[in-house]
Simulated assay, not measured.
Amino acid sequence: MNRANRRTERAFLRPGLPIAALALSGFALAGCEGRQSALDAAGVSAREILATTWILFIGAGVIFVLVMALALYAALIRPERFPGRRAWVIGGGILFPLVTLTALQLHEFALARRLATLTPEPELVVEVTGYMWWWDVRYHVEGQEPLRGANELVLPVGRQVELRVASADVIHSFWAPSLAGKIDMIPGHVNRLPIVAQRPGLYRGQCAEFCGAQHALMAFDIRVLPADEFDDWMTAQRRPAPEPVTPQLARGRDAFFSFGCQSCHAVRGTEAAGLVGPDLSRVGARPSLAAGTLPTRVETLAAWIQGAQHIKPENRMPSFDVMDGETLDAMAAWLESLK
């Protein structure tokens, strides 16, 4: 063994290298979890998609190993000792791909049909409209007025839900990888996506179609609740906004109207009924603000009101940088109290 080979062997036998490899493996496995992971399926459709994904990955891995082994074998032996050369070409190069790809195609056709099959009478219909760059959400329950929300989707466990998605401007794409597949949102056309959540939790979705400068800041939260908690949530959402309980909150509510925010936004139980921007009736209870851009807190609400165009340029929310600090804090506190 020459010196170069000995150096290489010693390098691979160093104790630090296995530890580094294990650390890298840990980081890779950590990427399989999280609120927006297709490998952490929490819905019926997501589980079926994940099963097909593993079939494709494992099958591709096995085929790759076999092909590399055959290539190595063919490279090392003499040509005249390689048996059945024509049979390998016909069997491995024509018949095997034809049979394998046909079987996978039939499986994927059947899967796509199952995922797109709509329930004749879904228990809940949720209308989602994509805007640049936020989400308008409306819940439709038979016999009740539609309930409007924004940038958040709340679903019950185990119930058939039909999402009806469309766009108000450019093409968007609704993608909640932990719960269902991806579906395009096209202006002037309504697409339908059935979804059944199986596990309570907080998940994250994202627009998956480039839609402009702030495409990366067009996310949404998905809260999956047990069925009885979801019914209680729906009841609570229909209640009017609570009255301010402190002078600061009262000042914040008055500032909301004096600066004309009601022209774009709605708050149930008040005169604010705007449809241009997101509904703010329960904005304080949402995990994030401005379509996943900021966590919802008094400080971030104040920052968004004062510098929306700095935080998310070219969105339709103007920056109200003419407001004094006390008024700004009061308005942010009032909005945060809407829960």
Rank of each mutant, 00 (worst) to 15 (best):
Ser37Phe: 12
Tyr73Lys: 01
His172Glu: 05
Leu275Thr: 13
Glu326Pro: 11
Asn191Cys: 07
Glu142Asp: 15
Phe230Met: 01
Gln214Ile: 11
Leu249Pro: 00
Thr100Glu: 12
Glu314Ser: 13
Gln206Asn: 07
Thr296Asp: 02
Thr246Trp: 12
Leu124Arg: 02
Pro122Met: 11
Ile58Thr: 05
Gly16Asp: 12
Gly59Thr: 04
Gly292Arg: 01
Gly149Pro: 01
Glu314Ile: 08
Thr293Lys: 07
Val161Cys: 06
Ala213His: 04
Thr102Tyr: 10
Met185Glu: 09
Gly181Pro: 02
Cys211Lys: 00
Pro97Gly: 03
Trp304Asn: 02
Ala330Pro: 11
Gly252Glu: 01
Met68Asp: 03
Asp329Glu: 14
Phe257His: 06
Asp329His: 14
Phe27Thr: 05
Ile183Trp: 00
Thr117Ile: 05
Leu76Arg: 07
Ser288Gly: 10
Asn151Ala: 06
Ser281Arg: 05
Ala216Lys: 08
Leu217Gln: 09
Ile222Glu: 00
Ala112Val: 04
Ala330Glu: 02
Asp184Tyr: 06
Ala166Asn: 04
Arg223Met: 10
Arg78Val: 11
Asp40Ile: 00
Ala255Asn: 04
Asp184Pro: 02
Asp231Thr: 12
Ala290Arg: 00
Leu101Val: 09
Phe109Ser: 06
Phe220Ala: 03
Val125Ile: 14
Glu229Trp: 09
Lys312Arg: 13
Gly59Trp: 05
Asp40Cys: 05
Leu249Phe: 05
Tyr131Thr: 10
Ala75Met: 07
Ala213Arg: 04
Phe220Arg: 00
Pro122Asn: 09
Gly91Asp: 06
Arg223Glu: 06
His310Arg: 08
Tyr139Glu: 03
